[in-house]
């Protein structure tokens, strides 16, 4: 930009604009433009705030999934894990509320983080020590976590104690300088994720393990450790999402987080992360999560699509986005 920034002319690949990397952001911009044309209410402050806030859960979990996927694994259990962690947190908070009052929320959140990390650790250890395909392992734990929340709730719902609702409510509905709190939390998670993935040795090893696990192994990288840690990060992200989620509806039910794993994986892949590992795009993941939410929003806002065909249109848009990815480079 200015002459002051000119340093030695070392060729830096990052400085060129890569259109392939811009893909998800262009797609997001395109969807938003279409939305504006379809319905002027789409760009209203409330609607934009709603959509961005809603996408927080998928975005936060998808940041974790970006680690798992870029390390060459997969986690199908995140939706169920989310429901399970939510249930444990609410039960803890309700149990502690009589003695601790609103502080129970803090303790409950801490317990949630521990439980989330433990769930992730479980997935990671089975995958790495057991040397079993991640797909099958997390398909199994998906069922386990889902059954546990159903059992904890007797198939009904686990509502948070009435006394905790009001102190906890701002975590979803509140805002910081006009920015909804879940969005702030998402930004923090994304920044932390981008830092770890792009700027630390761990991130480097994570992508090496996904890019070619043999090369990583031959270079002295402990692939098992790297992948296990990726699952733990995923578990922590799930717990953070759960912390933001509880105040929204104040209950955990057996349908909480149902099919979120597919949305999460879709967001990650739309964002430009390779499903086979080795290439991670954290900001692309965020764009992917936003694209999914915006499309769902548009389906309601527009009157073009029959309610019976909404899912088909969403599917077509996702496939088009991936095709654009492929041919844009």
């Amino acid at each position: 930009m200015t002459s002051a920034t000119s340093t030695r002319a070392t060729p830096e690949p990052g400085r060129r604009i890569r259109w392939a990397d811009m893909g998800p952001f262009l797609a997001l911009a395109l969807v938003i433009v279409i939305g504006t044309l379809i319905n002027s209410n789409f760009v209203s402050g409330t609607n934009i705030a709603n959509v961005v806030t809603r996408s927080a859960f998928i975005a936060i979990i998808a940041v974790g999934a970006t680690f798992v996927i870029s390390s060459g694994c997969l986690d199908l259990s995140v939706g169920s894990m989310m429901a399970f962690v939510t249930g444990i947190m609410i039960l803890t908070m309700n149990r502690l509320e009589p003695s601790m009052g609103a502080n129970a929320i803090l303790v409950g959140a801490a317990v949630g983080l521990v439980v989330g990390a433990a769930c992730g650790l479980l997935n990671g250890l089975i995958v790495t020590l057991g040397k079993i395909e991640p797909f099958i392992v997390t398909l199994g734990t998906m069922g386990i976590f889902r059954a546990l929340i159903t059992w904890l709730s007797d198939g009904g719902s686990i509502p948070i104690a009435r006394e905790l609702r009001d102190p906890y409510r701002p975590v979803y509905f509140g805002n910081l300088f006009g920015v909804p709190l879940p969005v702030v939390i998402t930004l923090i998670v994304v920044l932390a994720g981008a830092f770890i993935l792009y700027r630390t040795k761990y991130g480097r090893r994570c992508m090496a393990a996904g890019s070619n696990s043999d090369v990583a192994r031959f270079s002295g990288v402990s692939v098992a450790w790297v992948r296990t840690l990726a699952y733990v990060i995923q578990g922590l992200c799930v717990a953070i999402a759960a912390i933001c989620y509880i105040p929204r509806l104040g209950a955990a039910t057996p349908t909480t987080g149902a099919l979120w794993e597919l949305q999460v994986i879709t967001a990650v892949v739309i964002g430009g992360t390779l499903l086979r590992g080795g290439k991670a795009r954290i900001w692309g993941t965020v764009a992917g999560a936003l694209i999914l939410e915006v499309i769902a929003n548009l389906m309601v806002m527009s009157n073009f699509v029959s309610e019976y065909l909404v899912a088909a249109v969403q599917g077509v848009i996702i496939i088009l986005a991936m095709l654009a990815h492929r041919f844009i480079r």
Partner: peptide
């Protein structure tokens, strides 16, 4: 190619991986 270098990664990342 199979066990030595990450073919899709830039030279600098390969150089310092180990």
């Amino acid at each position: 190619k199979g066990k030595g270098l990450l073919l899709d990664e830039p030279m600098a990342r390969n150089l310092t991986l180990q």
